[in-house]
């Protein structure tokens, strides 16, 4: 066995197989979708993108994903802080539950929200009486996005809090800084990279979300139809070029965010 793997041919074979796999599975499909969207030239690309239903779907997605990300930043920072700094009963349990939205199939997540907030549900009835609607409207989409991206900010903030030097904080106290001042000037700035990169990851994931949203959005074109559902519809109606065109807008968006996040993280680790 040993001498077999010593042979150059074996290691060469392994290397090329793995690299080819990487190329075929990840790189080629991404190149493929970019070429496909321009396959009929610029004009059809422009037409598919400028279709009011298409760009309304993209705009709606960006808007709702942004709202979801902001809310996630707020609750995520708070939860990350609470879970790390306070000792209380059930802390470990909550800490494990954070990852549940990652472990749970998104379609199941969507179904949960539908059951909980949908027509005939307790919350849905109350909202109905108060005169606003949740399910099959924008609020439900935001809730679905928040649910799916819930762990990102928390998991990005926690390691920063853990590695933070407590003496910095204590130094601030000895110099007479109040708790609030210390938090804002000492603690929060060191949490900020995590908050931002977690927030951006959440935003990018919310842009891409499909499973949870498709079940609760109602998917009314121009009103509650988000980009990924729009793409799905285009595929179903056999307009793959149009689907590809909208896809690359969404993709490019996500790639830029991912790139920024990796920049931020690289800067942090090089410090």
């Amino acid at each position: 066995m040993n001498f077999m793997f010593r042979s150059r041919w074996w290691s060469f074979g392994f290397r090329s197989t793995v690299m080819l796999y990487f190329l075929l599975l990840v790189v080629i499909p991404i190149i493929g979708i970019y070429t496909q969207s321009f396959s009929l030239g610029w004009k059809p690309f422009y037409e598919s993108v400028s279709d009011p239903l298409a760009w309304k779907a993209v705009l709606l997605t960006v808007k709702l994903a942004f709202i979801a990300a902001v809310i996630n930043i707020l609750i995520g920072t708070m939860i990350g802080w609470t879970l790390n700094r306070y000792k209380f009963a059930g802390r470990r349990l909550l800490n494990s539950l954070v990852d549940l939205p990652f472990a749970l199939p998104t379609a199941v997540g969507g179904l949960m929200i539908l059951l909980l907030l949908g027509p005939n549900s307790f919350v849905g009835n109350i909202a109905d009486k108060l005169g606003f609607q949740i399910v099959f409207h924008e609020p439900a989409i935001v809730v679905a996005m928040i649910f799916v991206t819930f762990p990102f900010v928390i998991r990005a903030v926690q390691p920063l809090l853990e590695e933070m030097d407590k003496s910095e904080e204590e130094a601030a106290y000895t110099m007479g800084a109040s708790k609030t001042k210390t938090f804002l000037q000492i603690i929060f700035p060191s949490m900020l990279p995590g908050v931002l990169s977690g927030g951006m990851l959440a935003f990018s994931r919310a842009l891409a979300e499909f499973g949870a949203v498709v079940l609760v959005a109602g998917n009314i074109p121009g009103k509650t139809l988000i980009a990924s559902v729009f793409i799905y519809g285009e595929i179903e109606s056999d307009n793959s070029q149009g689907a590809a065109a909208v896809s690359i807008i969404l993709l490019t968006f996500s790639f830029i965010i991912l790139w920024i996040v990796s920049r931020v993280q690289a800067r942090r680790s090089s410090k």
């Binding site: 493929g32 559902v229 793959s240 590809a244 896809s247 969404l250 993709l251 996500s254």
Partner: peptide
């Protein structure tokens, strides 16, 4: 991670 799953599926259909 950045690609919407729907788009991931679309890529395979396209290729």
């Amino acid at each position: 991670f950045a690609v919407s799953p729907v788009i991931g599926g679309l890529m395979i259909v396209l290729l």
